[in-house]
Amino acid sequence: MLSVTALFLGWEAYVQLSGISPTALPAPSRILVQGIEQREALAEHSLATLQATTFGFACSLSAAFLFSVLVDFFRPLRRALFPVFIITQTLPLVAIAPLIVLWFGFGLTPKIVLVALVTFFPMLVALAQGYEATDRDIEALLASMGASRVRIFLSARLPSALPYFFAGLRISITYAVVGAIFAEYAGAAKGLGIYILNAKNNFRPDLVLAAVGVSATLTLTLFGATVLVQRAAMPWARLAESKP
């Protein structure tokens, strides 16, 4: 926090003292003022980005969960599917984003597809790893009680995967925002990505940076939300200290 403040102060001082043109490097104060002036446009575009992010992420989460269950119950599927998924991760966003826009148009769909594409595999891996981390003794215990495979999955493997799931969630949610902005940058009617592109083309680095600030805030907020959800979902995780 302190270092961030110092950075901004230094930046402000440098711009004020050097007299550098605001079209090259705008001062933080100017970015803030311009950003506030443009708040309605920024809010509208942010909302579009937020929508793309959450829809895309919800789709990829559901798909990742579905596939994780599938590969957990049918092991051979894992070896068949994972190479395909890994290839999707090696596609460069810069190349794939315009193509997806070309195929799916300027609406919400291409953003959802791109967000899902960048977040699906990390979430799938996190879940699969989480299932594998299940305590063998707990599984043996359940089996000795006569529990079915479905029962063992629900009672042991799924809860064991929660910490891994949330770790994956925290990373993926930041990818998701970046993915949405990338898709918008490649072509969109609305969204922070297209806003940034327009501001750049109009030689307004202050508005570019204002949009960057907004997207950073958006990412941090989503990140914070996942931390809160994790705390609520895993109350036992923070209890180890208070022994009798």
Binding site: D135, D137, I138, A140, L141, L142, S144, M145, G146, A147, R151, S155, A156, P159, L162, M234, W236, A237
Partner: peptide, 29 residues
């Protein structure tokens, strides 16, 4: 499944409250 088994380590589920750990076998039944 004729026997009640207690594994080498306690194998309590950290995400279940103590009472819900002790009822595990009954719930499976």
């Amino acid at each position: 499944h004729r026997f009640a088994f207690m594994p080498q380590r306690d194998a309590l589920m950290p995400w279940r409250r103590v009472i819900d750990n002790t009822t595990l076998g009954l719930e499976v039944e």
